[in-house]
Design a protein around this nucleic acid. Structure first.
Lengths: 260, 260
DNA sequence: CGATACTGTCCTGTATAGCGGACAGTGTGT
DNA sequence: ACACACTGTCCGCTATACAGGACAGTATCG
């Protein structure tokens, strides 16, 4: 995750490493274990954890396990308030999930990975594929192809590390094929993949665009692969409509008339 | 906010100051302005902002205004998932707001301040008193009294800075009176204040308790001060029931059977 | 026009933050 | 009983992160 440098690391980098690690493990963790996991000296991490606990960014429970603290909640609240994308995207996802009964997600890129930003489970009993916030290689997903639509082939090659083209089952995606997929997604603004990251799941997605027509997120359904094609096309139409809906609401500047 | 020390500051402290300042202003802000606001050298802040932007903790828009980045959202998502308090508290607040038509809030302490963690506006047109995440002196609020119920008088004195006893209109709350209020709240687990932070608003609150019977949050209504006492008592009963409801669900360990 | 106030980048010296390691305490296995 | 693996605290050395300022560029003002 961090640089391989063997030299003394900065406090800031340690902080980032700590937070990223907690996100990755998604569990409270002992301070010593945390230090080991991110390859940092224990003394440094003890210090940092104390400082961040004081500020509420982290929290230490009665067994001295470290995890995120209340401050991140308030920071996120402010973040969400400034991003209509999330507010409206969530609303649409919840609505679609109710109307169609399918599991609906809002997805986005985070650095060079793909992640689920929000998920609303459907009414049918259907297992959850991936948790919110877990980072996944972009080529593993239908949405990932849509989210790259705004980029040139060269920058896509630069962005995605080679190992990300290897699927969980060992198959390797050809980069040329992938770029072709992206180009196709660019034109239609919709993708449908079958058994990509998971053999029994089809993923349907439509892109949410910002004012410059860049894909900033996708809204998608996770449906059983056995779902008839006609039904899937129908669902995809719903997604495209919903995405357009959200996109159109992003044009209003969020804090244009805000007080100083 | 930070120490008054004139010496060189740590990177970590700068990071915390930056995040806290963004929370306080609740707006994207220029880098130079940010540096000035927290009393830090510009060069340091440029550096830090760049680093934090890379990690997604901050975001810089096209006008080079800095604000929270997507990472905080995912950290908060993890935080919420590990805190049943928030999930259940939110649900209850939304339900109460629907049932009663009143503005409902979940409130908690953050360091030595009081803050609204979640707010669900009521059906009636009623102005919003305070935004989510804004820090308010504890003595200004009804909920604050409940939230201190687990502490001794001495630790309360140590916690709250003297200036926090001065109300916005200039009146000063006597510390003894305040401690008496807290003691009363401790017994009944409910508070009602009239025109404390605002002359036309009554605040009704009940405490949500953790497994050790410490108040970890409150659930409260903001109603017009003119609301008849009988009606207010009725609403308070609802709050107490809701709080008990949430409290009882906090006893289950959130990640007891979680996978490694 | 010059004056003032920004902004973003780059450089250099030194106060100090982070590292490594020692230490005592606790628990668990044999 | 000992060995081993922890944990949390403390301390001194030194590589370096931070502060401070210089710099060029841009914008607004009268």
């Amino acid at each position: 995750m961090s640089e391989i440098s063997r030299t003394r690391a900065r406090g800031i980098d340690r902080v980032v490493d700590v937070l990223e690690h907690l996100r990755a493990v998604r569990h409270p963790i002992g301070i010593g274990e945390l230090a080991r996991a991110i390859g940092a000296p224990r003394s440094s991490i003890y210090e940092i954890v104390e400082r961040l606990t004081d500020s509420g960014l982290l929290e230490v429970d009665e067994q001295n396990q470290v995890y995120f603290g209340p401050s991140v909640y308030f920071y996120a609240d402010a973040y969400l308030a400034s991003h209509p994308l999330f507010r409206h995207g969530r609303d649409e996802a919840i609505r679609l999930s109710k109307v169609t009964g399918e599991t609906t997600q809002i997805c986005m890129l985070l650095g060079n990975k793909y992640t689920v930003a929000f998920m609303q489970p459907g009414s049918s009993l259907f297992r959850i594929i991936s948790e919110t916030g877990v980072l996944v290689p972009i080529p593993w997903t239908a949405s990932g192809r849509l989210l790259l639509a705004g980029m040139s082939d060269d920058s896509i090659r630069a962005l995605i590390p080679p190992e990300d083209y290897v699927l969980p089952d060992g198959r390797v995606i050809d980069i040329k094929d992938f770029l072709t997929d992206v180009a196709a997604a660019r034109l239609t603004n919709r993708t449908m993949t079958l058994g990509l990251s998971d053999p029994y799941t089809a993923c349907l997605a439509a892109a949410i665009l910002d004012e410059k027509a860049h894909a900033v997120a996708t809204i998608c359904f996770m449906v059983p692969a056995a779902t008839p094609l006609e039904k899937r096309e129908e669902l995809l139409d719903e997604l495209v409509a919903a995405a357009r809906n959200v996109s159109s609401r992003l044009i209003d500047k969020p804090w244009a008339a805000a007080p100083r």
